[in-house]
Amino acid sequence: MIRTLPNSKAYLWGFKSYIILYFSFLFAPLLVTCILAFNDSQFPALPWKGFSLDWFTGSSSERVGIFHDQINLQSIWVSAQVAFFVTILSTAVGTCAAFLFEQENFRFKQALYFLMIAPLVIPGVILGISILVFSTSMGTFFEDSLKLDVGLFGPGFWLVVLGQFSFISTLVTLVVSARLKKFDRTLEEAAMNLGANRFEVIWHITLKFLKPSIISGAAVAFLMSFENFNTTLFLVGSETTLPINLYLQVRDGSTPVINAISFLLIVSTSAVALVNLYFSRRRA
């Protein structure tokens, strides 16, 4: 059954092959995508025609590698900007929310906590359409009653940022709260007895303690924002983010450029995830 009990050979081998199968299932699509990025062929398919970096660095007319592909580079840049703003906003608000729910007491705290959790169980598509509908209503309202034409309310960059922020903040809140729970509040009392006010205590003591979890919350926020599709789909304007742009290309047929982008994404997100994991292990 378990490692401390006698197990039959068949049981252990059966279990081991199951796990190997499971991991092959998990990694097969990613591995194949990466390998085919280097195939010297016009299509992301076998047979293997030799190693080539054309789909990364190529600039000939039939093979435009990712480093020369203006449309895809542009969408990577848009995604990076969106992710940057989402990270800043959701880390700030998520940290406030963690303090609010862990250290403050007020009426309707339970109800507000429930609301804060809600974005996690609302399907992303619904978040997308509700924010789209609401911002359009606001836009019409401002136009009709105040004669103001505010471009911000239409689908576009800032709406994407707000849409992703609406649920990523919940994730940051949960990450930061988990660490704030372990904080020894006698440290705060000690600092207060020594004459610090509440803001000084938070700035010099609590936030120092929270720093690792804030960094890892920010990393989660960045990755989540960079890869978000469902919510973004409804809010995106003319500046498409990378996942939307890739989706449009995959739907209408594909070239190995998509493999090259996928390869870069897999390598860089794994790197961010591993670094994040390394730091979270070290502090544990």
Binding site: L26, L223, P243, L246, V250, A273, L277
Partner: peptide
């Protein structure tokens, strides 16, 4: 945990080039 960090689109795309008619 590793594959979880990669965009859903990349994962689905991987399955597409594995499974389609001209697939691996």
């Amino acid at each position: 945990l590793l594959p979880f960090w990669v965009s859903e689109l990349v994962r689905v795309y991987g399955w597409m080039i594995l499974l389609r008619e001209s697939g691996v």
